[in-house]
Design a binder for these strands. Structure first.
Lengths: 135, 135
DNA sequence: AGGAAAAGTGAGAATGATTATCATTATTAG
DNA sequence: CTAATAATGATAATCATTCTCACTTTTCCT
């Protein structure tokens, strides 16, 4: 089990981390950059990318896949699942644990030939606002 | 249930579809472009992108997320699950059905507030070759 | 404290996947 | 057969991300 040591964060990294932790959506690097500018007007975009990468590597945050707007980050590092709107692309947290039987996971990992680390369930469907508009 | 009518495919679209169906990995648009060139040397990259988009919209193939190399496509449109190597990024099919209890799915969809369409389980871990190299 | 080495920073250039544009060519409809 | 329509492909534009590099800040040693 490779646990990467969490180094102490400098103030820039801490500012970025605070933004990600406070966000309830799953912000992109650009959104984080915009948000961090209000508290650190001097920080450059490249630094935000660099810091996000480091934070993810050290386990402070998680990279949670990409969509047409770019890579998205999640301050919730506990295992949890997501719902994706098939109409507008919204990426939502599922606030309950989706229980997948452990033996089903193990069997699947064996069948795929991978050494299982973690897993995630993704639900696809219409988010509330898209569902309302009936499509 | 919105089913998009599958229009008849012209020969270019058919050529692209054949490539995607024959691929056992999950090729990117560029890989598909390279492969289709051998049978249609004249086809342009923009056409490949356009055709892939149409094929996905009509349900012939599926867009299956992005990674650092771009969007990946899957000729297998039946519901199935994937494994992602956390070291090399490989995206593998899981050749068995990962059974998630229907009530767990429904409860999760309700909790997230979405109208459930489909779902996918993603396993994260080390693929065979990365596992071998012990990291 | 003093100063050299290391790490971090930010502005802007470079990269690379995807999309838009548009003149040209194929297809369809009447 | 001809007009309208759709598809095509070359190229340019877009946009997220990464790279580069000169400069600043921090760390570390004595």
């Amino acid at each position: 089990m490779e646990t990467i040591a969490k180094t102490k964060l400098n103030s820039n990294a801490q500012a970025v981390l605070n933004i990600v932790l406070a966000a309830h959506n799953h912000p992109t690097a650009l959104e984080i950059y915009e948000a961090v500018k209000s508290v650190r007007p001097h920080m450059g975009l490249a630094s935000v990318y660099r810091i996000l990468h480091n934070l993810a590597e050290q386990g402070y945050i998680r990279e949670i896949g990409r969509d047409e707007e770019g890579n998205r980050y999640d301050g919730n590092t506990a295992r949890h699942d997501h719902a994706v709107c098939t109409n507008c692309g919204a990426l939502l947290d599922i606030p309950v644990e989706v229980k997948v039987p452990a033996d089903a996971l193990e069997q699947a990992a064996r069948a795929a030939g991978i050494e299982l680390g973690s897993y995630e369930v993704r639900l696809y469907g219409l988010c509330p606002s898209c569902s309302m508009r009936t499509i």
